[in-house]
Computed example of a mutant assay.
Amino acid sequence: MDPQSGVRVYFVNKRLSRLKVLWWNRNGYCILYKRMHRAVLAIPSDGSGSPALKIGTRSASRR
């Protein structure tokens, strides 16, 4: 995985209440940190039970 290829890396805590997104910008790395107070994140499942999940940019973008 080449960080400068435009890939985004997502980190979610066990409670699904915090999210970190790491990606490469032309000037360096960018990080977004989101903490949910009353909501939890809905993470899509790949069915294998693996803690690592690969999602496409279409799934990760705003709708």
Rank of each mutant, 00 (worst) to 15 (best):
L22K: 06
A60D: 14
F11W: 07
A60R: 00
K20R: 13
R62Y: 15
L19T: 06
I55V: 15
S61R: 15
W24C: 12
R63P: 07
K14R: 15
C30W: 02
Q4N: 09
C30H: 05
L32K: 01
R38I: 06
M36L: 12
L53T: 12
H37G: 01
M1N: 02
L32G: 03
V12S: 09
V9K: 01
S59P: 00
K20S: 01
S59D: 05
R35Q: 11
P3F: 03
D2E: 08
H37F: 06
G47H: 13
L22C: 10
A42V: 07
S17M: 02
S17K: 09
K20C: 06
G28T: 08
K20P: 06
M36V: 02
G49P: 01
Y10F: 10
K14I: 00
G28F: 07
K14G: 03
R38W: 09
D46E: 14
L32H: 05
L53R: 15
P51K: 14
N27H: 00
H37W: 04
W24D: 08
W24E: 13
V21A: 11
Q4K: 03
A52H: 11
S5Y: 02
A52V: 13
A52K: 08
I31H: 01
A52P: 00
K14H: 07
F11T: 00
F11H: 04
S50N: 14
L41S: 00
R26Y: 04
T57Y: 02
A60S: 14
R63V: 02
L53Y: 08
P44E: 09
W23L: 10
R58A: 14
A60N: 08
V7Y: 06
S50D: 03
A60L: 15
Y10S: 08
I55C: 14
G47Y: 11
T57S: 14
L53V: 15
L16S: 13
A52S: 12
A39V: 01
S61E: 15
G47W: 14
Y29E: 07
S5A: 02
V9N: 03
G6F: 05
S50Q: 09
G28Q: 10
H37Q: 13
K20M: 03
G56E: 12
G6C: 02
R18M: 11
V9C: 03
A60Y: 11
L41T: 06
S45G: 11
K14P: 00
S17G: 12
C30S: 14
V21N: 01
K54H: 12
Q4I: 01
C30K: 10
